[in-house]
Simulated scan of single mutants.
Amino acid sequence: MRIGELAARAGTTTRTLRYYEARGLLPARRTDNNHRTYDECDLRLLRQIRTLQDFGFGLEETRPFVECLRAGHPQGDTCPASLAVYRRKLDELDALLEQLSGVRETVARQLARAELAAEAATPGGPEPECELGGHTW
């Protein structure tokens, strides 16, 4: 298939496909008249890349999965390098979840403090100070 058809079937653009080709993620096969040509395996590679990117993997993080698919592994994620990327991504996600949990706790404390201050405020009295994040405005 030609580049336009592959782009349409993969739900992407020809520009993206050329970029992937330049990065070495998509093979650059050419016909005698110098047109790019692709097959179903290339579509599968693109779907793998897109799925991983949808899950938050960077383009370079998809490389081991692409190489695993090219090596003949049907899922593209059973090779040691792919497994290592999964492990790193899980560590990264765990760290983000921990950070978000801390932020959530801070916001919950600030809300509780603000609600108490709002209940205690008297009409016409001085404006309460904002202490979000340790800063007073």
Rank of each mutant, 00 (worst) to 15 (best):
S101W: 00
R29C: 05
L96Y: 02
A120R: 12
T136W: 09
G11P: 04
T16N: 11
R30Q: 10
L43V: 12
E115S: 12
E60Y: 02
A28V: 13
L45F: 14
P128L: 07
L83A: 13
D39I: 06
Q75E: 14
G56D: 04
Y86S: 01
D32H: 11
T14W: 03
A28D: 13
A121F: 01
T62F: 07
A121W: 03
E127G: 01
R29D: 09
G125I: 03
E21F: 02
A112S: 11
R70F: 03
E115G: 01
T122M: 11
F55H: 13
E40Q: 15
R23C: 07
Q99V: 00
H35I: 09
E127K: 12
A71N: 13
T14L: 07
C68R: 02
A114M: 14
S82Y: 05
L17I: 10
T16G: 01
E131K: 09
P74C: 00
R88Q: 15
G134K: 08
R50L: 09
C130E: 13
E105C: 06
A28S: 15
D91T: 08
Q48M: 15
I3N: 03
E60M: 08
E115P: 01
D54Q: 13
H35P: 00
Y38W: 09
K89I: 04
Y86K: 10
F57S: 04
Q99L: 09
L17R: 01
Y20N: 02
R47Q: 15
Y86M: 12
T78W: 05
L46N: 01
A84K: 11
R63F: 09
E98W: 10
N34P: 06
C79P: 05
A118T: 09
L111A: 11
L17V: 06
Q75V: 05
A28Y: 04
L90G: 01
L43S: 08
P123T: 06
Q48R: 15
A108T: 12
E21K: 01
S82C: 08
C79N: 10
H73R: 13
L93D: 00
M1I: 07
L17H: 03
G134F: 10
A114G: 05
C130F: 08
Y19K: 01
G58V: 04
T62D: 02
T122E: 15
G134P: 08
H73P: 00
L46F: 07
Y20I: 01
K89Q: 14
H135D: 12
S101K: 06
P74N: 02
R104E: 13
R23Q: 14
R113Q: 14
H35Y: 15
E115K: 14
F65V: 00
L93K: 02
Q110A: 12
T122D: 11
A28H: 10
T13P: 03
C79A: 10
E60C: 03
C41R: 14
D94V: 02
L96K: 13
A117M: 15
D91H: 13
H73K: 06
A7I: 05
L45K: 01
Q48I: 11
R50V: 05
T13F: 06
L93T: 02
A22H: 03
R36V: 07
A71T: 06
E21R: 05
F55Q: 14
G133Q: 08
T106Y: 06
D77Y: 10
E5C: 01
E98M: 13
L97H: 05
G4C: 02
Q110N: 14
P74F: 04
Y38C: 04
G102P: 00
A118Q: 10
R9Y: 08
L116H: 09
F55M: 15
Y19T: 03
H73Q: 12
H35C: 08
L100I: 03
Y38S: 04
M1K: 07
